[in-house]
Design a protein around this nucleic acid. Structure first.
Length: 662
DNA sequence: AGCACGCCGACT
DNA sequence: GTCGGCGTGCTC
């Protein structure tokens, strides 16, 4: 008898099915292999993964025999299955959806090669103490399953091959090497590929060759599948070699042999929020996995998220600061006058003087607000903003030679005409970094101005003086030797965003930029005062997080409480709220019409409700909501009338702990 | 999702 | 009397 998880999007099939094992393939049916299995009717086959093999079944009925074994690669490790099950239960979602994130699509050629050759073994081991912290503290945490909220070292360092990286990357790489030396794997999750490149650069110098596997989304599926397979036990003898596995948020599901350490860098970055169902945040996945496998966990970064601060205050994580304490030199300028020269009045005079002086010594970074990830379009003749012909959403260009697409409904709009003047040519509207660069170029004559933004990010700049680097937040290049000065320019504008966590976000953007300064080089925060400026100046981000947490407790906002958002047609949302009645929740906000600033669906009458509940009742709330999702999928049929084109919107979408909600 | 089972109108 | 309508329910 084989217990199989089937690959199907149907919530009602999100459980294990028992199948008989035909004698002909009995030897190949082992836990973790991909199989095909008949489902319901003869001739209908579903893909699946063997979770385990046993003698007894709970199912009273004749077991259907498995159809075939797809390949001998055991791609579903037992602990990854437990993780997928636990995470999906927590999120009121399907284990299937988690497995899709955990296991890359199969590539036959890659797999054949791996089955024939296996992966590198007998990784040579080199010792590297973790520098910058109390001696042996991080090592003993890694060895003993410790849980740390680690304040990263600000600053950049030069590696033996001449590359410059943030010091945070060195700390995490050294901790990971420590785990590998003691015979266990380490998973390091970073927000994006630029962080990943730094980490990989350090690992090339401190980690044994062949011990690092990269699972980020930038690689092709074949490359990712090869890296994934290299983490599995050897195909011939089942012996596993510990690895350092680095990647983006989905690396937390990697099949790590004997997992000893999970580390996240900058857990406040929105890229750690999974946009795919069941929407589990990497931080939560890390915590679940750490509990299941009793390994060490490190949340490192230049700021402290409110979520991590909560765990520190609960005593679950230990707050660890560098010894000796290293802090950048931050200069607030809230009350100062603005320079009136040809810079558009945006640069306070103190910042202007600081930059002018520092430019003689080395590169200077100017951080500006981001105009948006993509450039929007406007009519070339009359300047009217270009809108979607379908839903009136703003049109954008993903790249310079793409067809414009709608930011709301995603539709490609190849036949656009201006709604005002009927003109059919458009231009890109770029504001922000480009304009600022122009202005600053005039303000600092004789200076080379380079721009780094979301579309064209620079990874690094050299230590040439008279170089002004204008970067949107999050796209700051690393300067060799660190910047001679850093000017944080659009603080006020960044703070204008309407969100519960603007303050946290701004402090994170500023702190991450300040961490790129050369030792002793000034960072000027322009035009912002108050507790945020104070937290940055004193390099006490954890104090700000503590104060924020205090506020959230008073308001009953996450992470003081947990929240579930329920979106769908009014009847479906009401069904979910009725189910929540039987569970100890705190309260319900709404239902209210779905906020108009979000993506507009063709479906008009969608509403959203927010359920607030205590951490202790998370399982009960998730189970109740899951029950409604299953009932919605099986019970009442979709309304036959008024059928619309396109994908049928799910009748109910449930997101737990959505960071964007308030 | 598909597909089978099941209980009411117009046909040989 | 039966063929078939698609509402309802299940998938090892």
């Amino acid at each position: 008898m084989a217990r199989v998880v089937l690959d199907t999007p149907l919530p009602q099939l999100d459980r294990l099915f028992d199948y008989a094992i035909p004698p002909a393939i009995a030897e190949q049916v082992v836990p973790g292999v991909r199989v095909t299995a008949p489902l319901r009717a003869e001739g209908r086959l579903a893909d699946g993964l063997v979770v385990d093999v046993g003698d007894t079944t709970e199912f009273d009925g004749a077991l259907t025999p498995l159809e075939s074994v797809v390949s001998p690669a055991r791609v579903l490790a037992p602990e990854v299955w437990s993780l997928a099950r636990r995470v999906s239960d927590r999120q009121a979602g399907s284990a299937n959806d988690v497995l899709r994130l955990a296991i890359p699509r199969r590539s036959v050629a890659v797999e054949r090669k791996w089955l024939a050759q296996g992966s590198p073994r007998d990784v040579p081991q080199l010792a590297h103490p973790v520098a910058g912290y109390e001696g042996g503290l991080i090592e003993s945490a890694v060895d003993g399953g410790g849980r740390l909220a680690l304040r990263s070292l600000p600053g950049v360092v030069e590696l033996s091959d001449g590359a410059w990286v943030g010091r945070w990357a060195v700390t995490l790489a050294q901790a990971a090497v420590r785990a590998v030396i003691s015979g266990r794997s380490a998973i390091i999750a970073v927000p994006d590929y630029r962080d990943q490149e730094q980490l990989e650069a350090v690992l090339r110098t401190v980690a044994p060759a062949g011990s690092v596997a990269s699972l980020d989304a930038r690689r092709t599926n074949a490359q990712r599948y090869a890296a994934f397979l290299s983490c599995l036990p050897q195909p011939d003898d089942g012996v596993s070699t510990p690895r350092i596995i680095v990647g983006n948020r989905s690396v937390l599901y990697a099949p790590a042999a004997k997992l000893g350490l999970i580390a996240l860098y900058d857990d406040g970055d929105p890229l750690f929020a999974e946009p795919l169902a069941p929407y589990a945040h990497a931080r939560d996945v890390a915590l679940v996995r750490q509990q299941q496998q009793e390994c060490a966990v490190i949340f490192a970064g230049h700021t402290r998220t409110v979520e991590v601060q909560r765990l520190v205050e609960l005593g679950y994580l230990s707050d660890v600061a560098p010894v000796p304490l290293v802090t950048p030199k931050v200069v607030p300028t809230a009350a100062q006058q603005r320079q009136q020269a040809g810079d558009g009045g945006r640069v306070p005079s103190a910042a202007f003087r600081t930059a002018a002086e520092a430019l003689l010594a080395g590169p200077v970074l100017v951080q500006v607000a981001r105009p948006g990830y993509v450039s929007l379009l406007a009519c070339r003749r009359c300047g009217q903003a270009a809108r979607c012909t379908n839903c009136a959403g703003p049109l954008q260009l993903a790249s310079s030679h793409a067809v414009p697409s709608c930011a709301w409904c995603g539709r490609l709009v190849g036949d656009w005409a201006c709604s005002e003047c009927n003109n059919t040519t458009y231009r890109m509207v770029t504001r922000g970094s480009g304009r600022t660069a122009e202005e600053l170029g005039r303000a600092f004559p004789g200076t080379r101005v380079v721009v780094s933004d979301g579309e064209r990010p620079l990874t690094r700049v050299d230590d040439e003086p008279r170089t002004l680097v204008v970067a949107t937040r999050g796209a700051e290049p690393i300067a060799a030797g660190g910047y001679a000065a850093i000017i944080l320019l659009d603080g006020e504008r960044m703070l204008q965003r309407e969100s519960l966590h603007v303050g946290d976000d701004c402090l994170r953007w500023w702190s991450n930029a300040a961490a790129l300064a050369a030792p002793g080089a000034p960072t000027v925060l322009a035009g912002v005062g108050g507790p945020l400026a104070q937290a940055l100046t004193l390099w006490q981000q954890h104090s700000y997080a503590a104060a924020q947490l205090q506020d959230r407790r008073a308001l009953g906002f996450p992470p003081a409480l947990r929240v579930a958002s329920v979106t769908g047609r009014p009847a479906a949302v009401q069904a979910a709220l009725d189910a929540a009645e039987h569970v100890p929740i705190r309260d319900v906000l709404g239902p209210a019409p779905v906020p108009a600033d979000g993506p507009r669906t063709l479906d008009d009458d969608q509403v959203r409700a927010i359920v607030r509940f205590e951490y202790a009742h998370g399982d009960a709330v998730a189970a109740a909501l899951r029950g409604v999702i299953v009932r919605q999928a099986t019970g009442a049929r979709r309304p036959p009338a008024g059928r619309r084109r396109g994908r049928p919107a799910p009748t109910l979408r449930v997101k737990l702990d959505d960071p964007e909600i308030l």
